[in-house]
Design a protein around this nucleic acid. Structure first.
Lengths: 217, 217
DNA sequence: TAGATTGTTAATCGATTAACAATC
DNA sequence: TAGATTGTTAATCGATTAACAATC
């Protein structure tokens, strides 16, 4: 791939979807796909698929398409999921406990290796074989397992404080479920997943596609 | 607002974030914000904020900024969350049960009024005062409560089948947590939340900001 | 070969940004 | 008034698309 050149933001948002779709085709027993077969279920045009993939290198075969096994390997390497990632989970409320049990993470190489909570009453509790640690143990455990990623599932008003501690202890990426925008220093990466925001976006779409039909314009 | 004119896709993705930020400022006791104050925490430029809001109408006051209470009201109306939305939850695995208990939905006017599952052994169980119904009761309950929205938290391989049933029973918007791309007819709206995809996007960012530094280019 | 499909170009389209007159 | 901040313009930037020669 082009030595370190940075992929356009729009491309980055799609490669994981390509990977997911390819894995689905592989489970179905297919061995090759065309750019149309790959893009259609994702509502992405075939030209877009080819351009996105071409950014990273020449993986296709004219007249054939893409070899699924080959492309899965390439994309996994590009994304960085061709290896296991240990991570910590902070916050053991309803959402945190669900994320801990969520099988989708494990099957994709994400392993939660430690749990943390601010709430004194939750510390020491055992969840699926892991004991909830006080936030003070964060530095030791992060160093011990060389952990770079954290899932943040604490209440909104605690999120920034916890994020600061995560950053101070060496965490380089945070998947944030708290409904707030976090401030982190450069070099620390954030992905925010605000479930209410997603649901609101859905409501907006539903409204548009119904009632709000025509009227003027 | 301009009679039914459709907002650019990019704008739609930001209005819920503006609303969330405004509510946060309101809790802090502020009564006005400038476009910079609103955009900065979200890493959105002030010109962008003004342009986004101006799309829907003139809500700002030169020299002052935006009145928070006023703008919250306007945005809630635009998004469609100035009223309550009943919704159904399908799938009572770990994630489904967590979403049911998630307080963030309730506080924003989203009320889960019925639960469904394919799994015979889960039907009849009581969760937080709601009884899990067989999927066959979907039509009756959707009609009864005039429900338009569904949260889909079933395994990947069941998702499309359930989505088809939801659509057939009149659901117009689906928040899909299953890690598959669903196919739905026009007029039905989808928002997909694939937690593993989000985590993979985070890994990609972390890799970029570290190891992959320079090399050529 | 004939048919299919790539990688890439050039054209279009939409989104972002800086700048500033108008306004309070 | 002086200072702050809007709404909007015009310029830039990036993303999408159609089309097609090259390839298997």
């Amino acid at each position: 791939m082009p030595g370190g050149k940075i992929a356009p933001k729009a491309v980055v948002g799609r490669v994981s979807l390509y990977l997911r779709q390819l894995e689905s085709y592989q489970r179905q027993g297919l061995t090759t796909v065309s750019s149309s077969q790959l893009g259609d279920p994702l509502s992405i045009k075939n030209a877009q698929v080819r351009k996105d993939l071409a950014f990273f290198g020449q993986f296709g075969h004219a007249g054939i398409g893409y070899r699924i096994g080959e492309l899965i390997g390439v994309l996994r390497h590009i994304i960085g999921v061709d290896r296991d990632w240990p991570l910590v989970l902070v916050g053991l409320g309803n959402l945190g406990r669900a994320l801990l049990k969520y099988r989708g993470f494990r099957t994709r190489g994400f392993h939660i290796v430690a749990l943390f909570d601010n709430d004194r009453s939750k510390i020491g509790a055992n969840h699926d074989g892991l004991v909830v640690e006080p936030i003070e143990s964060l530095g030791r455990i992060v160093a011990q397992h060389d952990i770079r990623l954290a899932i943040l599932a604490v209440p909104a008003d605690a999120a920034q404080g916890v994020a600061d501690q995560l950053v101070a202890r060496g965490i380089r990426g945070i998947l944030n479920f708290a409904p707030v925008s976090l401030l982190v220093p450069p070099g620390v990466n954030l992905v925010g997943v605000d479930l209410s925001v997603q649901l609101q976006n859905l409501v907006y779409k539903v409204q548009q596609s119904q009632g709000e039909v025509s009227c003027a314009g």
